[in-house]
């Protein structure tokens, strides 16, 4: 039992270190946008996700309706269904519903990648070990960023409006460089989003729905043009 935990924990340390600067940036951006320090930390504590909570927080700052925030966050996090489904095949089949529900909270792109690379069946202790480091890194990074923001000069804070989008670019560009499908999907997403933003009459729709429509259409076109084999997924 204990050795499984420490095995998982060791595997999660690099993820935790990688999360710290990202959540630090999240803390900065959230507080810069007017979110209280405690709430920024609570967002990371309760959501434990990157793109989804960045987008949701952005919409909170823009005072968007709750339903829009819910839909946008949900659409962004739909990908977790795929990972959760994949992990459901790898965990011990007799794992209780309670244990399954607990480890489900810790599924992220990175913990999923490591868990799915693990050769043995996944136990509850291994998963808890794997998740605890990244969870701590995510929450502590947010706290550090949130506290730092309150002491930054005003001019720096205003330049930080670009930070979130710069990070999104840093997430999309490297994979788009390596293969055609992500690049095409990205370009279609940008195209649809721009049309919905700038075309007269259509531009009445809110930013949350613009993101949802662009995401669904671009991903569907991508899936039609570049269907993936099982081994690539």
């Amino acid at each position: 039992m204990n050795s499984d935990f420490s095995k998982g924990f060791k595997a999660g340390v690099p993820i935790a270190l990688g999360y710290f600067p990202v959540s630090f940036t999240f803390g900065l951006i959230a507080v810069n946008g007017g979110i209280p320090v405690w709430l920024a930390i609570f967002i990371s504590f309760s959501n434990l996700t990157s793109a989804g909570q960045f987008a949701g927080t952005n919409l909170i700052i823009a005072n968007a309706p709750i339903i829009e925030i819910a839909l946008t966050t949900f659409v962004i996090n739909i990908r977790y269904m795929l990972m959760s489904l994949s992990l459901s095949q790898k965990i011990k089949s007799n794992m209780t519903l309670l244990y399954r529900s607990i480890i489900a909270f810790g599924i992220t792109d990175e913990t999923f990648a490591l868990a799915s690379l693990e050769k043995n069946e996944l136990t509850f202790s291994y998963m808890i070990g794997l998740i605890s480091g990244p969870f701590a890194g995510w929450v502590l990074g947010t706290a550090a960023g949130a506290v730092t923001c309150s002491v930054l000069p005003e001019q720096v804070q205003s330049a930080m409006g670009i930070a979130l989008y710069a990070m999104f670019i840093a997430l999309v560009v490297p994979p788009s460089k390596k293969s055609k499908a992500p690049l095409i999907v990205t370009i279609i997403g940008i195209f649809i989003s721009s049309i919905l933003k700038w075309l007269p009459y259509i531009n009445q729709i809110s930013s949350g729905f613009r993101i949802i429509i662009a995401t669904i259409v671009a991903s569907a076109i991508g899936a039609l043009l570049f269907p993936k084999g099982e081994e690539e997924l």
């Binding site: 793109a51 795929l82 997403g189 993101i211 662009a214 671009a218």
Partner: peptide, 12 residues
Amino acid sequence: LSYVPFAVLAAM
């Protein structure tokens, strides 16, 4: 599902 992250980030 595999293309959703790219489309979302692009649109945002």
